[in-house]
Amino acid sequence: MPGVCRELAKHLRVYLILARMNAMSQLAYRTNFVTGILMELAFLATKLLYALVAFRAGRTVAGLAPNEVLVFVGAFITATGFYAGLFMMNIFQLSGRVRDGSFDVLLTKPVSLQFLATLWRSDAGMFLVDVVGGVVVTFIGLARLPGPFELWRILGYVFLLACGAAVGYALTVLPQSLVFVLGKGGGLASFAGSLWELNNLPMTTYGRLGRLLGTYLVPIFLVTSFPSLFLLGRITGAQIIWGAVAPVAFLLVSRLAWQAGVRAYTAGGGA
């Protein structure tokens, strides 16, 4: 156990160093920084379009009032901060690294290969735009709903959102393990990215089968629907337990898939 804690502390230190390096290099290339923020703002606007439909149609969506839909969209924007700011760039770079052989360099480092390959790069600008934007949108939705909101609800929301981010990471890494076999991951990354988009709507809008699949088989609804349902007081006890257990289970599965994928890696690019 002390060994595990030491390893975790070491990886946390390395991650903080990498995050600082990434932030410094982004500030050195200001165009990248500014255009990254512009890109996230454009994506943020497209997510808000789903709430706009509810508002402009003036109808409930699966029993949810437009302001409640706005709370879900806000949670989705916040969670996207983790996806776009912390995972996405690494995932898009992975197939390039595998094809040109530069993945070999990562194999020689004295830290976890999965950690380096999937978390090396981060973008503070994108992360902050989405997290701040998401919190603001959630707050606007909440403020327009009747009734006060207790602190414990907000704390539970933050906890389930963190669990959702961990599930999101696992679900992003899982299909990418196939990159070592297929060689090119454009289609896979696009597929994983599009699955992420399913969070744009509350899980209650999907049919029974969709809800079951999205909760237990590919638990994409844990990313934003569970935290929002908790915040709105519509979650069940069983869902809270699953929301806390699923991240551990799916991180383990993604770890095993990654290790199997790496065993198939042949350094074909000849770095």
Partner: peptide, 8 residues
């Protein structure tokens, strides 16, 4: 430099 301008 264009950064993410094209994507935006």
């Amino acid at each position: 430099e264009t950064g993410f301008l094209f994507e935006a």
